[in-house]
Structures are given as structure tokens and as C-alpha cells.
């Protein structure tokens, strides 16, 4: 819809409404970041003022005295491996479902599709017993297995959509050129859906990185905690030191926010991928 005569009352109202909302969305995040540079004293005496200096004392406390760096590492490992495995096996399955006619194709598709509707959180008890039996409780591998399994249906769903849109003549052409099925997949088809893989990757990486429910149940020892979960224990320890708490939150939020601001288009496309047909 094109912009119409600007300057009329309605347009002003729209800008005020949008601007006000933007302020409400942004201000708390800015306050969180600013407060992380303040001492406790400053926070109490001049909560809305700019920090006196941008000193990094609070961040130094976190870096030197807490396990937060370790949490970061754990989250990176869990998210990285889960998303990698997920994309590889999810794309393989989606490729089979979308590019080949075979008996049971519909059954397999329905199997993946029904996975979309199962809230795994409600099966946490059997899952706990199962992982305990496999020795995967309090183990990052356990989390990786859960995240991979949980995110597979959506990944297969998204990738199937993209793979279906590729023309079958490309495949035929490669077949005429003598390429094997594996080669067709790896050299011809997959390179064409890398944008889709980025979207599916973001779609899954963000919730996995942010999740704290599963670590809450499956991870106990401090050295295995993820960042989202680690924040809870960190909050217990430093409950009176506001500056450090804000610094911890800012640190936890920073990496994903930076990536988001650089790649906002892809992020928005990725995170809404499941909800937009």
C-alpha cells in the first residue's frame, strides 16, 4: 500500500502510536544495558541517569568470578551441534519425502507432521527415565538429543516446502549427466536450498539457545549448565548486586542481539517460518 498524503491527522496519529510502541520496546533494553555499567549506588540514587563512566567492573566480576563464561561455552556447544545435526538429518529426511515417490511416503510425512503437535514438555517424566537409563542425564549429549528430536518435525516441514519448489527437470538433467542420487542431492539440489537451511537454522537455533526448561530438569552440575539456566543460579548468588545482575543479563542478551541486528531480515524470516505458509 502506498504512502498517501502525509501530514494529515491520521498519519500523525499513526506515527505517534508506532513511535510510542517502539520506545516501549527499546527503552527497557537500553536501560538494562546502561545499568550494567553502574555501581549499586548509582542504580539506587540515579536510576534513569546515564552511567558516570562506562567502566567494565561489573563485567569483570562476571568474567572472573562466575561460571557464566562456561555457560556460554555450553550453550554454544549444545546449540551448535543440535542445529548442525538437525539440518543434516532433517534435510536428508525432507529430501526423501519431497523428491521421491515411494510406498509409505504419505505415512512418513504424517509421522513427521504429527511430531509438530506433540508438546514434548508434557512427556518430561518418561523422557527423564529414558535419559537416565541411557546415562544422559546431567550430560550435554542428552540435551542435544532432545533438542534435535524436538526440532526435527518443524525442520522437515520447512525444508520439504523449499525442496518441493525445486524443478524436477534439474534432477532429471543431472541424472542424464550421469550423476548418482547422492551426487544429485549434494552437488545440485542442496546448494540451491542453502537460504532455506539458514532460515531453518535460525528458526531452531534461537529457541534452543534460549531454552531453559529442559536444562532445568536434566542438568544439575554447574559445569554443564547452559546460559539461560545458569542465569537463574547466578541470580541467586548475586541477588543484591544489581549492577552485576544487569551486566549478566546484558552479556547473555548481547551476542544474539548483535547477530539479530546484523541479520534482521533473515532472523524475522527464520523465526516466523513455521507460521507463514
Amino acid at each position: 500500500m502506498s504512502q498517501k498524503k502525509s501530514g494529515d491527522f491520521g498519519t500523525w496519529l499513526m506515527h505517534i502510536f508506532l513511535g510510542f510502541n517502539a520506545l516501549i520496546m527499546l527503552y527497557p533494553i537500553i536501560m538494562m544495558a546502561l545499568s550494567s555499567f553502574k555501581t549499586n549506588n548509582e542504580i539506587f540514587s540515579a536510576p534513569f541517569a546515564l552511567p558516570k563512566s562506562f567502566n567494565l567492573d561489573n563485567f569483570a566480576v562476571i568474567w572472573n568470578e562466575t561460571d557464566v563464561p562456561r555457560y556460554f561455552l555450553n550453550s554454544t556447544i549444545v546449540t551448535g551441534i543440535s542445529v548442525f545435526v538437525l539440518l543434516v538429518i532433517g534435510t536428508m529426511a525432507a529430501y526423501a519425502v519431497s523428491r521421491y515417490k515411494f510406498r509409505g511416503n504419505i505415512m512418513v510425512s504424517l509421522f513427521f507432521l504429527s511430531g509438530l503437535m506433540l508438546p514434548l514438555r508434557l512427556a518430561i517424566i518418561p523422557l527423564f527415565i529414558q535419559l537416565k537409563a541411557l546415562g544422559l542425564v546431567d550430560n550435554l549429549i542428552g540435551l542435544i538429543c532432545i533438542y534435535t528430536a524436538m526440532s526435527l518435525p518443524a525442520t522437515v516441514f520447512i525444508m520439504t516446502g523449499f525442496l518441493r519448489s525445486l524443478p524436477s527437470e534439474l534432477e532429471d538433467s543431472a541424472r542424464m549427466d550421469g550423476a548418482s542420487e547422492l551426487r544429485i542431492m549434494v552437488q545440485i539440489m542442496v546448494p540451491l536450498i542453502t537460504p532455506a537451511m539458514v532460515i531453518a537454522g535460525i528458526y531452531n537455533a534461537v529457541p534452543i539457545w534460549n531454552d531453559f526448561f529442559f536444562p532445568l530438569i536434566f542438568i544439575q552440575s554447574p559445569e554443564s549448565r547452559t546460559i539461560a539456566q545458569g542465569l537463574t543460579s547466578f541470580f541467586g548468588e548475586y541477588s543484591v548486586n544489581y549492577g552485576v545482575l544487569y551486566a549478566g543479563l546484558t552479556m547473555a542478551a548481547l551476542p544474539i542481539m548483535v547477530i539479530f541486528i546484523i541479520q534482521s531480515k533473515r532472523f524475522i524470516a527464520g523465526m516466523t517460518a513455521g507460521a507463514i505458509k
Binding site: P167, D177, G178, A179, I188
Partner: peptide, 20 residues
């Protein structure tokens, strides 16, 4: 025989050029 072993070549309606 599989397609490539038949000694034929095919030109497709959409040309099917590998875009990458």
C-alpha cells in the same frame, strides 16, 4: 540401462541449467 549409460542427451523445456 540407467539414463547416462544410454548414450543420449536431453534438452529440457526449462533448460534445467544448474543455477549455481
Amino acid at each position: 540401462l540407467p539414463p547416462a549409460k544410454r548414450g543420449l542427451a536431453m534438452v529440457f523445456q526449462s533448460y534445467a541449467l544448474y543455477p549455481h
